[in-house]
Amino acid sequence: MTLVVLCASAQAADAGRLFRYRDAQGVMHISSNLPPGQAQAGYEVLDSRTLKQLEKVEPRLTPQQLAERARQRQRAAVEAEEAARARRADLAKQNRDRMLLQAYSSEQEILRLRDRKLGDLERIGRGIENTIRHLRQNLADVDATIAAYRDDGRAPPAVVLERRASTENDLSEQLEFAARIRAEHAEIVERFAADLNRYRLLTGSLRTTAHP
């Protein structure tokens, strides 16, 4: 008995539905049956009494459409990441501005800190250059000793060759150190110039100073 009622209910539900779709020529149809293959082209399910839409089934996408949708999603993801990156950059800029105004009460404070850092680096740089001059002189002395041995037809002692290798290695390290100091010096000059310009913009000060 129960099975009969269920079947009758199912038939009544099917009888209450209509399908609305467009055929390959673009002609609209409303029918109680959905033609073979129409499901892939999309259709609507309507209430047979009110013709109110109950469900809409979108057409199945072609491989080209799927590829285009994937490209659109990728573009959207890239645009979203770029927007997020821009927001982070703007937030970082705001934080930097706030820290700049909190750290300095005047342009002179910025210049004094810059000059102090540059002075420290310049002292270190002078020490390195002095070391480099000594190492070059030592290397020249060792080379002269080695040349003297070879002029006499003798092989230079191992200890002399080892001293040359050690001196050459020390010289290479000091030259690299000097290059890093010069790069840091340039970075400080550039960074403080940017800080000073930004500070002037934030405080509305456009006056010049005696410092470069």
Rank of each mutant, 00 (worst) to 15 (best):
Q102R: 12
L121Y: 10
H134Q: 15
N95H: 14
I128A: 08
E107S: 13
I132G: 00
R123V: 14
S106T: 05
I124A: 15
E129S: 10
K117C: 01
R98Y: 06
L118E: 15
R85Q: 08
R112F: 12
G119T: 13
R96P: 02
D115L: 02
A77Y: 06
R88I: 00
R85P: 06
L139R: 08
Q108R: 10
A86D: 07
A103Y: 12
G125E: 13
V78G: 02
L91M: 08
R88M: 00
E107G: 10
E81I: 02
E81R: 02
E107K: 14
R96N: 01
Q94I: 04
A86R: 08
K93C: 01
R133W: 07
Q74K: 10
G119N: 12
E107M: 14
L121P: 04
A83S: 13
Q94C: 00
Q74T: 03
A80S: 03
I132Y: 02
A80H: 04
E129L: 11
A103W: 11
L101D: 09
A83M: 13
N138H: 11
D115N: 07
Q94F: 11
A80T: 04
G125R: 14
A84N: 06
I124G: 10
D90V: 03
D141T: 09
H134M: 14
G119V: 12
R88Y: 03
S106W: 03
A92C: 02
R85D: 03
D90E: 13
E82V: 04
L121I: 06
A77Q: 01
G125H: 13
D97H: 12
R133E: 08
L91I: 04
R87Q: 09
L101Y: 12
R85C: 02
E79P: 01
R75W: 00
R133I: 01
R73D: 07
Q74S: 09
L113T: 10
D97G: 08
L121G: 07
D143F: 00
D90G: 06
S106R: 04
R87N: 08
L111K: 07
Q102H: 12
A80I: 05
L121Q: 08
Q137H: 08
A144F: 11
R116V: 11
K93Y: 08
A77T: 01
R96W: 00
A92S: 07
L121F: 10
A76C: 03
A89E: 13
V78T: 05
G119R: 10
L135W: 12
A84E: 03
R136P: 09
D115W: 06
G125S: 15
R112L: 10
E79A: 10
K93E: 04
L101S: 07
N95V: 15
R114T: 11
L121M: 11
K117F: 01
R114Q: 15
L139I: 07
